[in-house]
Design a protein around this nucleic acid. Structure first.
Lengths: 354, 354
DNA sequence: TGTTTCAATAAAAACGTTTTTATTTTCCTT
DNA sequence: AAGGAAAATAAAAACGTTTTTATTGAAACA
């Protein structure tokens, strides 16, 4: 309404009709010229482009959308845990979105963000996006071991890229972090340092990458000829609160852990908070290895040894893959698994405080 | 393309034409009935709704968009600082988006996120959104003292809600935090505790709320009959890195500050990191008061006294205001300033470590 | 020279709505 | 019972594109 008001005052927004009147060509020719169709004569094309520039013509997205059936939207499902007390969570998503948006820059696609509260919500959102054609492509994360969204989208041939892999043997575009490898590396490092009682702070087990991490954890122990302490695997949401509670609970055990492998920056902060309030010192009483995707572990006191993978890079890859997928490219070519780099900030001779 | 494929297999998506054929009414009547226009007979309306439910009719957004000229998009400008080394920043935006999205739930509006890198980028994005009609309304933050976006949108009568206020005397919908009040309260608390050398960790001065905070800071000193130490106001981006550097620089001064007032959670973390690496203890050598909008200061070691305002609530209000603004409501009624609550986590008798 | 072929452009239809205008039906009123 | 008003519905136009089909004019061929 207000929008109309200011439109009325200035010259009406130019359309292909305007260009048709200006140049004397039909709107069909205008349309084809602007899309650089080879059927229109080069001289005409140039003329039409010139006119378009002159009046500052911008194709009307709504007209295009209706005719082509496309929405020119790239949808992203952004998980937000049901904010119990507004817990610190999902902080890395800003950078993920930034990365995706970078990839979309210069294209006709806009990024629409759909907030989801849980897995069921996410499945429903995906369904709606497909059915109503709300977007031409979809990006989502928090992949479950059995993820109904992947099943749906593969079945519907709907272009998507997932951040993470499910446990089913399907072909689909994805970007992931090698969680099995990272968990193995972190655990092996601690074992080499003499630790035997190592805790794994992990997400809920139905998340695919939770399983990956358990796999890596177990493999590290097996390779050392040891049994993995399965009872020291804590599962929960990835809030700071959860990290803190885990430390407090585990350190009351008779056979308490001497080291913690953390899953992300929020739980790491929680673990440090828990240790702090118990009076335990990191690097002296207990060792901690973090996983970090927003470069924050460097600022913890003390700085924490970390597997680091800037998530913005993942976001950028997600966006690039989605664009190519929407162009019809084979998902086989659109799969990439990143290995985070180890940033050692704690003394390497961990010494196993037993 | 792939989208078409799966469409072809099932029954074609129902449109008002489908409903017209089913019920025998014309598409005009169908349209009016679905919009609950009073001109259609109640009995017909019910009949048409029944048919719509039966086939699972969903209005085609593209058709509506073209005809009405609306986009059914609520745009949000999300600032992401040019990621120097992927610094931790903008973490609170996840919750802001969550809040906005909550408000939009159940309406026909979708949320599209436009990432902007700086103020100029933001102004350009706003311009594009208005000119191309990319959205029906706009939400943005990081308001400058003189913000060209506000000038533009007010002039164009384009519906928007800003998170923050500019320094010009204009009427527009906004949500803000009472930064003057918060900075005053924090500073006064420290002065009452005996501190005289208080540092203010602040954003760049061209941001409107940077000025608000300086105002509150100065007022607190003036009310105590003191001169504000203007040289202890640090200005920079709000990264963790900046917080850390500020502490390290200031504590080398001859007349070093004994307390820090921080602007957000990332700078607070940086300040704590800086203090930690200098071997200074919070609450013993130096006092710190934070501002927090994602409830994370509780987990710092030690927990920090904080002015807390959950940002998700602001997000929700932003969304609600935008909806009302897009309905044409007077912006006069759509202004709200929140006062954060003080959460004292450090001993109250600060004692002024001089 | 007349027919065919090809290149260039124009015309028309379509996408799914909403809205304005026109038509039909129903119900009063006299 | 006729006339008119009001209520209900239908028809048509429009929003700005793209795409399919049709038309024109010129070049090429026999």
């Amino acid at each position: 309404m207000a929008t109309e008001m200011h439109r009325a005052q200035r010259a009406p927004t130019p359309t292909i009709k305007t260009l048709a009147e200006m140049t004397g060509y039909s709107i069909a020719t205008i349309s084809k010229a602007l899309r650089e169709s080879p059927v229109v004569a080069p001289a005409t094309r140039d003329l039409i482009f010139k006119a378009a520039r002159e009046v500052g013509y911008q194709a009307n997205a709504r007209g295009m959308a209706l005719r082509t059936g496309k929405s020119f939207q790239a949808a992203v499902l952004m998980p937000v845990t049901a904010a119990r007390d507004y817990e610190w969570d999902g902080v890395e998503y800003t950078q993920t979105l930034s990365g995706i948006s970078q990839a979309l820059e210069g294209t006709d696609y806009r990024m629409s963000v759909h907030v989801i509260r849980d897995a069921a919500d996410g499945a429903e959102a995906a369904r709606r996006i497909v059915d109503q054609g709300l977007a031409d492509g979809l990006i989502f994360s928090g992949i479950l071991a059995e993820d109904p969204r992947i099943d749906l989208l593969v079945a519907e041939h709907f272009p998507f890229v997932s951040m993470g892999r499910c446990r089913k043997d399907l072909v689909y575009a994805h970007v992931d972090i090698d969680n099995e490898w990272a968990a193995h590396a972190a655990t092996a490092r601690l074992i080499a340092g003499g630790h035997r009682r190592i805790a794994l702070v992990n997400p809920e087990r139905r998340l695919s990458y939770a399983l990956d991490r358990v796999d890596g954890f177990v493999r590290a122990f097996r390779e050392a000829g040891l049994d993995a302490p399965m009872e020291l695997i804590a599962e929960g949401d990835l809030s700071t609160h959860f990290g803190r509670q885990t430390v407090i609970a585990f350190l009351q055990l008779d056979d308490a852990p001497t080291a913690f492998v953390c899953i992300n920056e929020s739980t790491t902060l929680g673990v440090l908070s828990g240790l702090g309030s118990l009076g335990r010192q990191v690097g002296v009483d207990v060792d901690v290895i973090a996983y970090d995707d927003i470069n924050v572990s460097a600022y913890f006191t003390p700085p924490i040894t970390t597997f680091y993978q800037p998530i913005e890079v993942l976001g950028r890859t997600l966006g690039q893959f989605l664009l190519r997928r929407m162009e019809g490219e084979d998902p086989k070519a659109l799969r990439q698994v990143f290995r985070p780099t180890l940033i050692a900030r704690q003394p390497d001779n961990l010494g196993g405080r037993l």
